[in-house]
């Protein structure tokens, strides 16, 4: 059974496990090596669970196309860095820092990232700045 904590787009009334940490879903809701979109405090995030069960959160909006699609990219590695490739034009980003590792010929633009913690099988994200 999955835990669904934030269920609407308002920032009010969010159940939080910690003053600034927001429980988003259970780890089991995330497929390994794939992303999922999440709505946290009205902001779209892309959560990724990697091979070693680490979870990363980055902005869902692809900075190169403007579409909200980052969670649908392919997860992988570049050297030691866990990465996601945008599904739109295939730019590659470091999931840990949001750094754009391969801009596919464009000017690199990084992704915003959010701190994530997994506690007791629940994925917590530090409250994002509204408006990203």
């Amino acid at each position: 059974m999955s835990i669904r904590v934030a269920t609407d787009q308002s920032t009010e009334g969010l159940a939080t496990a910690h003053s600034e940490w927001i429980g988003v879903c259970s780890l089991d809701d995330l497929a390994p090596e794939r992303g999922a979109a999440a709505l946290v405090g009205g902001v779209q995030l892309a959560l990724f669970r990697t091979f070693d069960d680490s979870v990363y959160a980055v902005q869902q909006r692809d900075p190169f196309s403007g579409a909200f699609v980052m969670s649908r990219g392919i997860v992988g590695t570049r050297g030691a860095a866990p990465t996601v490739a945008s599904p739109m034009y295939k730019q590659v980003f470091d999931l840990r820092t949001g750094e754009c590792l391969d801009a596919v010929g464009k000017e690199p633009v990084p992704l915003a990232v959010w701190p994530v913690e997994v506690r007791g099988g629940v994925v917590f994200v530090a409250r994002p700045e509204v408006g990203t």
Partner: peptide, 16 residues
């Protein structure tokens, strides 16, 4: 389940 809009809000439509 993969086709949900949001993992924590599968029934909320993406309004982008």
């Amino acid at each position: 389940r993969r086709f949900g809009s949001f993992v924590n809000a599968p029934d909320v439509a993406d309004d982008s």
